[in-house]
């Protein structure tokens, strides 16, 4: 059976980032991301990326785990890098057929990929260092609309259920001798299986809705959450938020 690494797989380990109040972490990290995304100078972007890497390092999350995620994200960044490389107008320094590469292109492509990479790392840090339901509770406490939190919550809760449901169907077809081939019969059968999956999901959602209303659901999801800020949380928050402000400050004053 396939294994689906959950982004919060390493939420249980210990590190200064893990112990940081999730609300404060959310605000500070988002602030830092915004600041990095807004950085206009490549030196600042490099510094931002460096900070992101440092924070991820401090979080103790195994490199291999991050690698698995980055594996699917890096091609994406690369794609943007290449597009930008060839499309930004400027003085050409090299051309391949009719495509020109310019200094401006290199600069902008590097700047933007650096920002993307740093932001993704930081996002990963935010979501990877606390259980996802805890993060959602933090969102809720921070005033993210309840409906939006519910959407995230149910996606998180049911995505794996759905994948497993399909695996179950596929396994059941397998033990009864069905082999996937590229012929009409195979396609038809798979189509039916997917259809059943939709019907099942639909029915599951209705039943779940009944279960929710049976226990008093009125459109708002209420959870118990306990958050407490201590002094160390404040210090961490000021450090990271300070970094964000500093990046912008330097950009404003010197660049």
């Amino acid at each position: 059976m396939l294994e689906f690494p959950k982004i919060d797989k390493y939420a249980g380990i210990k590190s200064p980032i893990h112990s940081w109040d999730q609300r404060a972490k959310t605000v500070s990290i988002l602030l830092l991301i915004t600041s990095i995304v807004l950085a206009q100078d490549i030196r600042l972007a490099v510094f931002g990326l460096f900070c992101a890497i440092l924070l991820v390092y401090v979080s103790n999350i195994p490199l291999s785990f991050i690698g698995r995620y980055m594996h699917s994200i890096i091609p994406f960044i690369l794609f943007f890098f290449i597009i930008l490389l060839f499309t930004v107008p400027g003085k050409a320094i090299h051309s391949i057929y009719f495509l020109n590469i310019s200094i401006e292109g290199i600069y902008l492509a590097s700047l933007i990929s650096m920002r993307m990479f740093a932001s993704i790392l930081l996002m990963f840090l935010l979501l990877g260092t606390a259980r996802f339901d805890h993060t959602l509770k933090a969102f809720e406490k921070l005033g993210v609309p309840n409906k939006f939190v519910q959407i995230l919550m149910f996606s998180y809760r049911y995505i794996f259920v759905l994948i497993e449901e399909f695996q179950r169907i596929s396994r059941s077809m397998d033990v009864r001798g069905f082999r996937k081939k590229t012929n009409m019969y195979s396609m038809k059968t798979l189509g039916k299986a997917v259809g059943i999956l939709f019907v099942k999901s639909y029915e599951r959602s209705i039943n779940t809705y009944h279960a929710m209303t049976s226990r008093g659901y009125d459109g708002t999801i209420r959870t118990l959450s306990e958050f407490k800020m201590n002094n160390i949380d404040w210090v961490k928050s000021f450090m990271v938020a300070g970094l964000a402000v500093m990046l912008q400050g330097i950009g404003f004053v010197y660049v």
Partner: peptide
């Protein structure tokens, strides 16, 4: 009146067991 369904997968929908058991009382 509280009802426990035949299929528990229909009954449980929160991200953690704690949240699920707390769901009803919180709504009350």
């Amino acid at each position: 009146i509280g009802i426990v369904f035949q299929d528990p997968d229909d009954q449980l929908f929160m991200p953690t067991v704690f949240d699920d058991v707390a769901f009803g009382p919180l709504n009350m």
